[in-house]
Measured scan of single mutants.
Amino acid sequence: MATGGRRGAAAAPLLVAVAALLLGAAGHLYPGEVCPGMDIRNNLTRLHELENCSVIEGHLQILLMFKTRPEDFRDLSFPKLIMITDYLLLFRVYGLESLKDLFPNLTVIRGSRLFFNYALVIFEMVHLKELGLYNLMNITRGSVRIEKNNELCYLATIDWSRILDSVEDNYIVLNKDDNEECGDICPGTAKGKTNCPATVINGQFVERCWTHSHCQKVCPTICKSHGCTAEGLCCHSECLGNCSQPDDPTKCVACRNFYLDGRCVETCPPPYYHFQDWRCVNFSFCQDLHHKCKNSRRQGCHQYVIHNNKCIPECPSGYTMNSSNLLCTPCLGPCPKVCHLLEGEKTIDSVTSAQELRGCTVINGSLIINIRGGNNLAAELEANLGLIEEISGYLKIRRSYALVSLSFFRKLRLIRGETLEIGNYSFYALDNQNLRQLWDWSKHNLTITQGKLFFHYNPKLCLSEIHKMEEVSGTKGRQERNDIALKTNGDQASCENELLKFSYIRTSFDKI
């Protein structure tokens, strides 16, 4: 039985969820670079991206490699990797027998973001014989899940209580170790020597080791999670996991709180800001991140802002960003909400898709409305799209047979046209069989910064309504002859009103 693990408890099935942008060198404390989270699957090609990484700022997932063999891993080693800020997950990587050479110096898994409450997941690794993470000293947050690894031993010899604050939620089941077939031998045991430290858990006094050649490092209890030197002297209180010299914040392997210019500090002093819960960055760093993602459509890219001495992905609820200094300031009234469309555009074809934009005031991208039916549609669209004030790209209304009016965009005031449909149009209306009105132009103002209007096959939309939009939106004169079809717009509506004058002759039985 794995020490510190839980057996036999019912657990939810383990679901495996399925960018080499360097964020800056980590400095003297770390020998390499800070790398983003990685999802490495199918083959070993991307694994080489770990070569210079000291910190993975995010998670590391290595999974679904069915053609790899043990010899493929023999020359692979990433000794610079010290810390993973989120979680480490391995799933069905064939041929991998140990992690001792792959990650010989991995010391800390912070667990800032977890995989279903777990910071370390080893699942269905069919050839893994031992973990071998002999320098792993601290899992700051989260638990361990090690399950269905039929060859995995050296679990009962690990004292997880020396690595985690609590072992109650560890789930370590259905491994070879369960069948008591392992016969784990710690260093020196074969020669009758006791080389590794022994600890007591559940009444068992057991030597602690990761492999037959690597003991588990056990520091004096007084050192807590700070770690200790090879001689057993406690590291500085700002260290986490390990250090090369005692009581020196510049000799830590990793930091308990924050890293700044080669030393570990309790908090980031001005003019620095907390970033990702582990390091200090200056304003320029946060500003660069903001600008890199301002026009990016890459998933996970955030326009970072500053709030409460932190550089964070977005302002919290009730705050909006001051564009001059990136500071989050309290909103006066309802907060603006910028919604970034991942692929640059979004099609609204149902109430469900409209709900995804609920509360958005600025759309960074283009909207395509293609709704053919739905219950209580006008009210639903207004509830979900009615706060949109600005669209950076274009607005396209296409084959939306259920629409009679666009009044559900009740606050839309600006279409920038930074991206144009077919390279020309910022407003595009095609084949809307029941569209009769755009907006009530006596109450609604709309500016279209650039781009043209396109109207074709809107049989109940009168040309007068379209011409009014040209005047109000500032697009009059931009359109070419064929942009607004004269014969297919309003051709099934009563669009022309003329005053009919009647004269009559009164007659009676005795007068003409």
Rank of each mutant, 00 (worst) to 15 (best):
H28M: 05
H28V: 08
L29V: 05
Y30N: 15
G32E: 09
G32D: 10
G32F: 08
G32R: 12
V34W: 15
V34A: 14
V34E: 10
V34Y: 09
C35R: 01
G37A: 15
M38H: 14
D39M: 08
I40M: 12
I40W: 13
N42F: 04
N42K: 02
N42A: 07
T45E: 01
R46S: 15
L47S: 13
H48Y: 15
E49F: 06
L50W: 11
N52V: 02
N52T: 04
N52S: 14
C53H: 00
C53F: 00
C53M: 00
S54K: 06
V55T: 10
V55W: 03
I56C: 05
E57C: 15
E57T: 05
E57K: 04
E57F: 04
G58I: 00
L60N: 00
Q61F: 11
Q61N: 07
I62L: 14
I62G: 01
I62A: 02
L64Y: 01
L64V: 06
F66T: 02
T68D: 04
R69D: 04
E71A: 13
F73L: 14
R74F: 05
D75E: 07
S77Y: 12
F78E: 00
P79S: 08
P79N: 06
P79E: 12
L81D: 01
L81Q: 00
I82V: 10
I82L: 12
M83I: 14
M83W: 05
I84Q: 00
I84Y: 00
D86S: 08
Y87I: 00
L88C: 07
L88H: 00
L88A: 03
L89K: 03
L90G: 00
R92H: 04
G95V: 02
S98F: 03
S98K: 02
L99A: 11
K100T: 09
L102V: 10
P104R: 02
N105E: 10
L106V: 03
L106F: 02
I109C: 00
I109M: 02
I109L: 07
S112L: 12
R113F: 08
R113A: 11
F116T: 01
F116W: 08
F116H: 03
N117S: 06
A119T: 04
I122E: 03
I122K: 00
I122S: 08
I122H: 01
F123A: 01
F123T: 00
E124H: 05
M125T: 07
H127L: 14
H127T: 05
L128V: 04
K129G: 06
K129C: 15
L131T: 04
L131I: 10
N135S: 08
N135I: 01
N135P: 04
L136M: 03
L136D: 00
M137Q: 05
M137N: 06
N138V: 14
I139C: 03
I139T: 02
T140Y: 07
R141H: 05
G142Q: 00
S143W: 08
V144N: 02
I146R: 00
E147K: 15
E147S: 15
K148Q: 06
K148T: 14
K148M: 09
N149E: 01
N149T: 02
N150C: 10
N150G: 10
E151V: 10
L152S: 02
L155D: 01
A156Q: 10
A156S: 07
T157C: 02
I158V: 07
I158L: 11
I158R: 01
D159E: 07
D159T: 02
D159K: 00
S161A: 04
S161R: 03
S161W: 05
I163S: 00
L164S: 12
L164K: 14
D165C: 05
E168I: 08
D169R: 15
N170W: 06
N170V: 12
N170Y: 12
Y171R: 00
I172E: 02
V173R: 13
V173M: 04
N175V: 01
K176P: 05
K176M: 05
K176T: 05
D178Y: 12
D178N: 08
E181A: 12
C182T: 01
C182S: 01
C182V: 01
C182P: 02
G183K: 12
D184F: 13
D184N: 11
I185N: 14
I185D: 03
I185H: 12
C186N: 00
P187S: 10
T189H: 12
T189L: 09
T189D: 09
A190Q: 15
K191W: 00
K191I: 14
K191V: 02
K193S: 04
N195E: 13
N195M: 09
N195T: 14
N195V: 10
C196G: 02
C196K: 02
C196N: 03
T199K: 05
V200M: 06
V200L: 04
I201L: 11
N202I: 03
G203E: 14
G203I: 05
E207S: 09
E207H: 14
C209L: 00
C209K: 01
C209P: 01
C209H: 00
W210E: 02
H212N: 15
S213Q: 07
S213I: 12
H214E: 08
Q216S: 01
Q216W: 01
K217I: 14
V218R: 08
V218N: 08
V218F: 06
V218I: 13
C219N: 01
C219A: 01
C219Y: 01
C223H: 01
C223T: 00
C223G: 01
C223A: 00
K224P: 08
S225P: 12
H226G: 14
H226M: 11
G227C: 06
G227Q: 04
C228P: 02
C228V: 02
T229A: 07
T229K: 10
G232H: 07
C234V: 00
E238N: 09
G241K: 02
G241F: 01
N242Q: 08
N242P: 07
C243S: 01
C243K: 00
C243N: 00
P246R: 13
D247L: 11
D247P: 02
D248E: 05
D248H: 10
D248Q: 12
T250E: 10
T250A: 10
K251P: 01
C252A: 00
V253Q: 05
V253A: 10
V253Y: 13
A254T: 15
A254L: 13
C255V: 00
C255H: 00
R256K: 09
N257T: 07
F258A: 14
G262C: 04
R263Y: 15
R263E: 12
R263V: 13
C264W: 02
C264T: 00
C268S: 00
C268E: 00
P269W: 11
P269S: 04
P270N: 15
P271K: 12
P271M: 08
P271V: 05
P271L: 06
Y272V: 05
Y273R: 05
Y273K: 13
H274L: 15
Q276E: 10
W278C: 03
R279K: 05
R279T: 09
C280R: 00
F283G: 12
F283W: 07
F285G: 05
F285D: 14
Q287A: 13
D288T: 11
H291R: 05
K294V: 11
K294G: 13
R297N: 12
R297E: 14
Q299P: 12
Q299C: 08
G300L: 08
H302P: 12
Q303R: 06
Y304N: 10
H307V: 07
N309M: 07
K310T: 12
P313W: 14
E314S: 10
C315L: 00
P316I: 12
S317Q: 06
T320Y: 04
M321T: 10
N322R: 09
S323E: 13
S324V: 07
C328D: 00
C328N: 00
C328T: 01
T329Q: 13
T329A: 14
T329N: 08
C331V: 09
G333E: 04
G333Q: 15
P334Q: 06
P336Q: 15
P336Y: 13
